[in-house]
Measured scan of single mutants.
Amino acid sequence: KELVSALYDYQEKSPREVTMKKGDILTLLNSTNKDWWKVEVNGRQGFVPAAYVKKL
């Protein structure tokens, strides 16, 4: 599985998104959309802005 690192804090703005803190390591589930990537963090799945994470 592919991992990404959070470059910035992000506070979810809808139920489809997830909150992350800078430095968090997230499991990348889907990166086909260039703007929003689906990740899993702390057992929750949702979307984060692609520009806020980088692949490890």
Rank of each mutant, 00 (worst) to 15 (best):
51 A>C: 15
24 D>P: 00
46 G>H: 02
51 A>P: 08
45 Q>F: 08
29 L>M: 07
34 K>G: 11
4 V>G: 14
51 A>I: 11
10 Y>L: 02
20 M>N: 01
53 V>A: 03
37 W>S: 03
50 A>N: 02
34 K>C: 12
30 N>V: 09
9 D>C: 07
27 T>I: 15
22 K>M: 10
40 E>F: 06
10 Y>W: 11
32 T>E: 14
45 Q>W: 09
52 Y>D: 02
30 N>T: 08
51 A>S: 13
12 E>G: 15
1 K>Q: 12
5 S>I: 15
36 W>L: 04
28 L>W: 01
11 Q>K: 13
3 L>V: 09
53 V>R: 00
28 L>P: 00
34 K>A: 13
56 L>R: 06
16 R>F: 14
23 G>P: 00
17 E>T: 10
39 V>P: 00
37 W>V: 07
20 M>W: 02
52 Y>A: 12
15 P>T: 10
51 A>W: 11
13 K>H: 09
10 Y>R: 02
51 A>V: 10
10 Y>T: 00
54 K>T: 14
41 V>G: 08
47 F>K: 02
5 S>M: 15
39 V>A: 01
33 N>P: 05
25 I>A: 04
4 V>A: 13
32 T>N: 13
19 T>R: 06
39 V>Q: 00
14 S>E: 09
23 G>C: 07
24 D>K: 03
16 R>S: 13
40 E>R: 07
7 L>A: 06
19 T>A: 07
26 L>I: 08
44 R>I: 08
40 E>Q: 09
22 K>R: 12
2 E>L: 13
42 N>E: 10
25 I>L: 10
21 K>A: 09
9 D>P: 06
36 W>G: 01
7 L>S: 05
25 I>T: 08
41 V>R: 13
37 W>A: 04
31 S>I: 08
15 P>A: 13
46 G>M: 05
56 L>F: 11
6 A>F: 01
14 S>I: 05
19 T>Q: 04
23 G>E: 03
26 L>S: 02
12 E>S: 15
38 K>L: 15
34 K>M: 10
8 Y>W: 12
43 G>S: 06
25 I>S: 04
28 L>R: 01
55 K>C: 13
14 S>C: 11
38 K>Q: 13
19 T>E: 03
23 G>W: 05
40 E>V: 07
32 T>Q: 13
3 L>G: 03
40 E>D: 09
